[in-house]
Amino acid sequence: MIYILLSDSFLPYIPRWREFYGFKRTESIIQNLKTKDKRYITPNTLKISSNQLFSLIEKRGFILQHTKVFDAFLIKKAPYNIVSTPEYLTGLFSIHVLTSIIPPFSLELQKNDLVIDMAAAPGIKTSLLAQKLRNRGIIIAIEKSKARIPALRANISRLGVKNTIILFLDSMKLSFNDIMADHILLDAPCSGTGLKVEKNKRSSPRKMRDILRNTIIQKRLLEVGWNHLKPRGTLVYSTCSLEPEEGEIQIHNFLNRHTDEVEVLPISFDIGIAGNQTNWKFPLNSQLSKTKRIFPDSGIDGFFVALLRKVGQ
């Protein structure tokens, strides 16, 4: 009964989710995918502290609640659209799902690092990288969609990001053989099955073959990113998909292709479960225990994230 409340495009996935995550977890996924997403804001620490932001926004009649895992606030009551506030226009905060925070904040950045963001629009994760770098170092923000570049440019301008080079480029074709990054952020294109139904803006329903197509793109992006990573550098890989082929299995296969070259590092956020707990046809690489499988919840999309360090030569 509950399934008819979901978009039709999700129906083929439900038996799969039961297989991977169990019956009870799948029921919870379905419940959460159809809930209305709540709005969260995070302070732009290039301009303001968390406490200052809280005080300013509450003075305008908004009621905020600090979240447990992230430095972010849930908007509990909004007298009007928060985008209309001077604080938003002056770039004191950004609005996004909480899972966006995990990939950029999983990287241990030093002030002069070179970071490549391989799929940068709309720029929220890029701006979080800039905050971690305190606007130092250099971020190469790559976006292949011409239509999405204005949003990327507007967001990083509004948020006061100054350490960025924006490139209009398909990251799959990246071949800077003389440019190696300290860190790579790859929030890869995916089927988006972890997104709340209300955010499902696709014109055509997702099909099973989309997963296969996406895994090919993700594999290529992972290899290109890895080739542009310095020894000892780190690559954070994430998708907003609930499909293991786009998460756990993608990383399992990557580890098999790069035996002895990769150390999987733990994700410091206390959220989700270890990636190796997902049921699959064969046992997953033990290093998957340090990745995170995150299920949809309030302010949180279904998500997978892995942090990989290049070891050896």
């Binding site: 070179l114 250099i138 440019r153 960025t164 080079i165 924006i166 209009f168 480029l169 003389d178 440019i179």
Partner: peptide, 23 residues
């Protein structure tokens, strides 16, 4: 400090692919 890097990037890309640099 961006200048050496963008000179390298310029070698690899077409003219219309560098969209924005710095502020």
């Amino acid at each position: 400090e961006f200048i050496p890097l963008i000179n390298l990037i310029k070698i690899h890309l077409k003219d219309n692919q560098i969209i924005q640099i710095g502020g």
